[in-house]
C-alpha cells in the first residue's frame, strides 16, 4: 500500500451529543425506562395475535412442505424465516420458551438445505411444540413442562441427525 493510501482515522463531529439534551422533564430517567418496558408488556395481547399469525403461516407452509414433490428447499427456507421471527419476539413478551424453541428449529433448519421425511417430522414436532406453548400460555421457561418439552426436541433432533 502506498504511503498516501494508509488507513485514515477520522474523528467526526458528534451531532447526537449536540442534539440531545441532558436532564429536564423529557429526560429518559429510570422511570421512563420502566414505562418503555411497560409499553412492551402492554403489547402482550397483540403479541399473542402476532404469534398466532406466525403459527398459522407455519401451518400453511408445513402443508406445502408435506405435499412438495422433489426439491422442498423453498418451503424449508420459508419455515426458517417465520421461525426466526418467532425466536426474535417471544422473549420480549415473557415467552422465553418460544425464543428457545424457535431458535432450536432455526439451528436445525440451518443444518439442512431440503428436508427428507424424517426431517419433516422434526420440523413438525417443533411447530407443534410452539403451538403448545401458546395454547397453554407457558410463560418464562415453562417450568418442568417446558424443560421436558425442550429436552424432547433435543432428543428428536439428535435421533435424526445422529
Amino acid at each position: 500500500m502506498a504511503e498516501n493510501d494508509a488507513p485514515r482515522l477520522i474523528v467526526p463531529p458528534n451531532p447526537l451529543k449536540t442534539k440531545v439534551g441532558v436532564g429536564g422533564p423529557g429526560a429518559v430517567t429510570p422511570e421512563a425506562l420502566e414505562r418503555a418496558e411497560a409499553v412492551i408488556t402492554d403489547l402482550g395481547d397483540d403479541y399473542l395475535k402476532w404469534v398466532e399469525d406466525d403459527l398459522a403461516k407455519l401451518q400453511t407452509v408445513m402443508i406445502s412442505l408435506k405435499a412438495a414433490k422433489g426439491d422442498n428447499s423453498g418451503e424449508v427456507k420459508a419455515i426458517f424465516e417465520i421461525a426466526h421471527d418467532v425466536k426474535g419476539q417471544g422473549g420480549s413478551f415473557g415467552y422465553q420458551l418460544m425464543t428457545e424453541i424457535g431458535g432450536h428449529l432455526c439451528r436445525f433448519l440451518e443444518s439442512i438445505e431440503s428436508a427428507n421425511p424424517a426431517e419433516i417430522g422434526v420440523i413438525e414436532v417443533h411447530i407443534d411444540a410452539l403451538r403448545l406453548v401458546i395454547a397453554n400460555k407457558m410463560k418464562g421457561d415453562g417450568g418442568k413442562a417446558g424443560d421436558s418439552l425442550y429436552k424432547g426436541l433435543e432428543m428428536v433432533v439428535a435421533k435424526v441427525s445422529g
Binding site: 488507513p7 458528534n14 440531545v20
Partner: peptide, 26 residues
C-alpha cells in the same frame, strides 16, 4: 433479539457517549 427497552436505550446512549472514530481504508 428479543429486545428490551432498556437495552435499546443503552445502545443509543453508547452512541451518544462513546462514538468511535471512523476509519477510511482501501
Amino acid at each position: 433479539k428479543p429486545i428490551s427497552a432498556k437495552l435499546v436505550y443503552y445502545r443509543i446512549r453508547s452512541m451518544i457517549e462513546n462514538p468511535r472514530p471512523y476509519v477510511r481504508a482501501e
